[in-house]
Design a protein around this nucleic acid. Structure first.
Lengths: 158, 158
DNA sequence: GACTTATAATTCGCTTGCATATGATACGCA
DNA sequence: TGCGTATCATATGCAAGCGAATTATAAGTC
């Protein structure tokens, strides 16, 4: 006889409280799928689009800075940039001051996509937030942010 | 000049409200990483563990039923089961009543891992929920669940 | 100046996810 | 009975993550 997943009553709410399934994981997956569907006509994916958003705020970031800002491994940004570069949304230039580094610059076409991303974020949020009270939505976003920080800190500690 | 991501003030809270980064995606990623770290000594990943949790509730599910319950493509379960089977946590038996189907059965070793999973879920939640009021946590979990349903419905509609 | 150590990016190999195509079996209907 | 259609699992190929190993360059130390 295994642990009783169906009647477990934790002292405080946990992710199992919802329906004993990985809600956070599912939610992120569904969001990504919807984003990718909406972005497909523009030739990018949601992960690639976030790279452009970072470059929009500060163009010419080094790949390692990009990785740090996105909390992602450098190898991940490396491949994202490969694809963005392949479509002409971004270009790599070796940093003359440090020849190990690449500076990544969004092209005009790349910059234009940030506008598209912003619009689509609101579209996806509109779908996701349907039927949720504004007050509770605000609480949720704050709590989610805190959870991310908690987990990030724990992973850094390991 | 692109859209002003830094000062956009939507009429109601959106995922951009937090810090203009993909919080939901980050959160799921961090959770998975932490889960996989904790599960590694047991020889499974979090995705594989959820398969076992479903079999714990009803052993002998068909792969397509498993996929439907997990809201995942059948090809995904197929490969998860490959790996679980390779480690002896699960076994496939052709359904005598429908020779197209496989019935998937968790072994004793597989069943034992569900207990481990449950414990680790509470551990990860404990980290994630640090410093969050119980009332707000409850609201968040309910809201997250609703968001998942909203997105799932939209994806089904497309 | 030579040596060691640290950092930047990439390559390789792995897991999870998707879409699409294929082969095998089941089912419905004429 | 047979034929078309639907369903189950898998094969293939792609994107996004990760860790570990590798190469090139910088930086610090003796």
């Amino acid at each position: 006889m295994g642990p009783d997943l169906s009647t477990a009553a934790p002292s405080r709410p946990s992710s199992l409280t919802v329906d004993h399934r990985p809600v956070f994981h599912d939610l992120a997956r569904f969001r990504s799928t919807l984003f990718d569907t909406k972005l497909k006509p523009h030739g990018i994916t949601i992960s690639q689009a976030w790279v452009l958003a970072h470059l929009w705020r500060k163009n010419g970031l080094r790949q390692s800075e990009l990785a740090a800002q996105m909390d992602v491994a450098t190898v991940t940004t490396s491949k994202l940039i490969d694809r963005l570069e392949g479509h002409g949304f971004v270009e790599r230039r070796v940093d003359p001051a440090d020849r190990r580094s690449n500076r990544v610059f969004a092209t005009d076409a790349g910059m234009a996509l940030v506008k598209v991303l912003t619009k689509i974020v609101y579209q996806v949020d509109a779908v996701a937030n349907e039927g949720i009270a504004e007050e509770e939505l605000a609480i949720t976003l704050r709590v989610i942010g805190r959870m991310r920080e908690n987990l990030k800190a724990e992973l850094a500690r390991l």
